[in-house]
Amino acid sequence: MTGTPGAAATRDGEGPERSPPCSPSYDLTGKNKVVTVDGVKVKLQIWDTAGQERFRSVTHAYYRDAQALLLLYDITNKSSFDNIRAWLTEIHEYAQRDVVIMLLGNKADVSSERVIRSEEGEMLAREYGVPFMETSAKTGMNVELAFLAIAKELKYRAGRQADEPSFQIRDYVESQKKRPSCCSFF
């Protein structure tokens, strides 16, 4: 799920699958991505609406079954950031209560064109209680980390034992962002 056109965040080389059109101009792209978490393969099925506001009414069906949603905005496009609140409102209305949500500010590789400061993304994420990071679909910065964090959270939820300490996706994302060998852009 994205807040802006062109913000798809996969780089695994798999070809996209097209969903059946609901109207001549409706097109969602779907991909499967396998992520290994603690030696276990987790298959993620990813649907990208490219943030097009005209698709908002038909995405309700996708919310119902979604276990996780990645919301992307373009750091060079204020309207894509402003649309995130509307997407979050709909997610809270139509998605499962325990859906995993992550906010991503995309196009971090073009910081010279930035109109949304990283701090603004962090504040919005804190307001909604979701993890946040900036990514670059072009360079791959933090893309794998985003998918890995979501997969870890889903794996944890699927196999959680009552006496097991809880997995905190926000803490995991923050700790991994600070590791220079993992996901640093610079």
Rank of each mutant, 00 (worst) to 15 (best):
W47R: 05
D48G: 01
D48F: 01
T49V: 06
A50E: 02
A50P: 02
A50K: 00
Q52D: 09
Q52S: 09
E53R: 11
E53D: 13
F55H: 08
F55G: 04
F55W: 05
F55N: 04
F55K: 07
F55T: 07
R56N: 13
V58S: 14
V58W: 11
V58E: 13
V58R: 13
V58A: 14
T59K: 12
H60N: 14
H60R: 15
A61L: 10
A61V: 12
Y62T: 09
Y62W: 08
Y63T: 04
Y63N: 00
Y63P: 06
R64M: 02
R64D: 02
R64W: 03
A66S: 09
A66F: 01
Q67A: 05
Q67I: 02
A68Q: 02
L70Y: 05
L72W: 10
L72F: 13
L72H: 12
Y73K: 00
D74G: 04
D74E: 00
T76C: 07
S79E: 14
S79I: 12
S80D: 03
F81D: 01
F81I: 04
D82H: 01
N83L: 11
I84W: 02
R85I: 08
R85W: 06
A86T: 11
A86Y: 08
L88P: 07
T89G: 10
T89S: 13
E90T: 06
E90N: 01
E90W: 05
I91C: 00
R97C: 09
D98P: 03
V100C: 01
V100S: 05
M102S: 03
L103S: 07
L103N: 08
G105C: 01
N106L: 04
K107L: 11
A108I: 11
A108S: 15
D109I: 08
V110W: 10
S111Q: 15
S111G: 15
S112I: 13
E113W: 12
E113Q: 14
E113H: 13
E113P: 07
V115G: 09
V115H: 04
V115Y: 09
I116W: 06
I116H: 08
I116K: 06
E119W: 12
E120P: 13
E120A: 15
E120D: 14
G121T: 12
M123C: 13
A125F: 07
A125P: 01
E127R: 11
E127D: 08
G129E: 06
G129V: 00
V130H: 04
P131T: 01
P131N: 04
M133W: 04
E134D: 02
E134T: 05
T135F: 03
T135Y: 04
S136W: 10
A137Q: 02
A137D: 03
A137W: 02
A137I: 00
G140L: 09
M141R: 15
M141D: 12
N142F: 01
V143M: 08
E144W: 09
E144M: 12
A146P: 10
F147M: 02
L148D: 12
A149L: 10
I150W: 00
I150F: 05
I150C: 00
I150S: 05
A151E: 09
K152R: 14
K155A: 13
K155W: 12
Y156K: 07
Y156S: 11
R157T: 03
A158K: 14
